[in-house]
Design a protein around this nucleic acid. Structure first.
Lengths: 250, 250
DNA sequence: TGTATGCGTTGTGTATACATTATCGCGGGA
DNA sequence: TCCCGCGATAATGTATACACAACGCATACA
């Protein structure tokens, strides 16, 4: 090989996958646009084999779509696709919460969840919330959802939730960021926090149905707020995944 | 290349993927066993590149697991994994039924569903059901579920349900076959048919909650019956996916 | 006899060359 | 002027060669 610089700390496949995902989410590649392998090879620095592996993985992730005649294109999503994805995720998380409640969770396992809760409470005490604090909130919120998912102790379900969150707008951080575009953002976050509190309580008391219901309600609220946020597109550039939304909605 | 025979009717990648999946489901490759690329190249007739693509796809499908040090192994499932997968699928189908009911379905779109229903009714009239008829039943039942899924009109949800059904024991045909191992199999199929009838009715009357509830109940029944079937492993060899079950359960 | 080290073999990760197919443009004919 | 067909070009699908890492075995030393 020529003077190609090879970073041996991570596999070329992973490097290419990360680089391509970044290009897609940053909007450098537009929805519907065909992805050229050759071009991807140049921009990622990997050779064709790992690039192809990365493309296959990104297709499975849902960010790319296979073109029947060959190759891949960036997937385009409608507003409906997005709200459905959020509701889908909420439904799966509801199942996770129910599993956690029914199967029982020790106080020790519940601890990380309560820590998240407390940390978020602390953040929300600021009015208005600072940019840094909001960034911490996004991380903490994602962590809360991830821990909750784990508590289901169901590998197939955890796997499926991870897959559902691959679509950036369906991830906890994704829709929090979208909601933050609304003027009443802080109010929304406080309500969300209330949901978090209820789900912990329901799990502690082994009330599966209640735990499930609140998570689904949580997602439905997120859907409503996302719709509102999409109406008045003021600060919506906060959401990087916006690049994936079809310009012409269905 | 040498005298390797190439079948140009389908892509090598797809051919390799099908061949490997077949090997896994038939039990030729045992759960936990490492899959050697070289060996896969020999048995599938494709070369390493398409074999590797197939392996990546099968990993995303959930049939394989990546080994940290490199390569893939056949994934092993516990009984819990299986029942969780079925319940997961039922939850997703419940959401699909609710979407269909809430979003409205024309009489014309409901037609294929009713045809499946009627055809299955016809089959179940036989007592006892013949082997051929049972085989038709499996096909029709899978079709019923697939059509119902489509009626949700939600591409993200449809995609997720497809992914959930990739695990053979979570597919409609998979758990029907498992249930058939029970002595009261025919009785079970009649109850399942009743569920089908109710979900159609609920969709027609736009009762989302009822449509969802019955699909979830449908899956819960399947879980119970699968558990029973796994207890008395009499005719369970009907289920090819059995090869994936861990011998040592957790 | 047990353990550690080194070498060999096997297998995956990567790169690239080759084959084949799709796409686009140009030219000729209706 | 429009449509059909053919050819060139570019991009994908496939095969294979090379590099490196991991595992195992054997041997030597404690």
């Amino acid at each position: 090989m020529a003077e190609r610089e090879v970073d041996r700390s991570v596999s070329q496949t992973v490097k290419a996958q990360l680089a391509l995902r970044d290009q897609i989410l940053s909007g450098a590649l537009r929805p519907g646009e065909r992805i050229s392998e050759l071009q991807a090879v140049e921009t990622t620095g990997a050779s064709r084999t790992p690039v192809r592996m990365a493309l296959v993985r990104l297709e499975e992730e849902g960010l790319l779509e296979a073109i029947p005649s060959g190759g891949f294109m960036v997937k385009a999503f409608s507003e409906r696709d997005i709200s459905d994805s959020i509701e889908l995720r909420g439904t799966l998380e509801g199942l996770a919460a129910r599993f956690a409640a029914e199967r029982g969770v020790s106080a020790r396992e519940l601890e990380p969840l309560k820590e998240c809760l407390a940390a978020i409470d602390e953040l929300l005490r600021q009015v208005p919330i600072s940019v840094d604090a909001f960034s911490s909130y996004v991380t903490l919120n994602a962590r809360f959802h991830a821990v909750l998912t784990e508590l289901s102790r169901s590998p197939p379900l955890i796997r499926q939730i991870d897959r559902a969150s691959a679509l950036p707008f369906a991830s906890p951080s994704g829709f929090v960021m979208a909601q933050s575009a609304l003027p009443e953002a802080q109010q929304i976050l406080i309500i969300a926090q209330e949901h978090h509190r209820v789900v912990i309580d329901a799990i502690e008391n082994r009330e599966g149905a209640r735990a499930e219901a609140v998570m689904r309600e949580h997602a439905r609220l997120a859907v409503r707020n996302l719709r509102l946020a999409l109406r008045n597109r003021t600060h919506l550039d906060l959401l990087p995944a916006l690049a994936l939304i079809k310009t012409a909605n269905d």
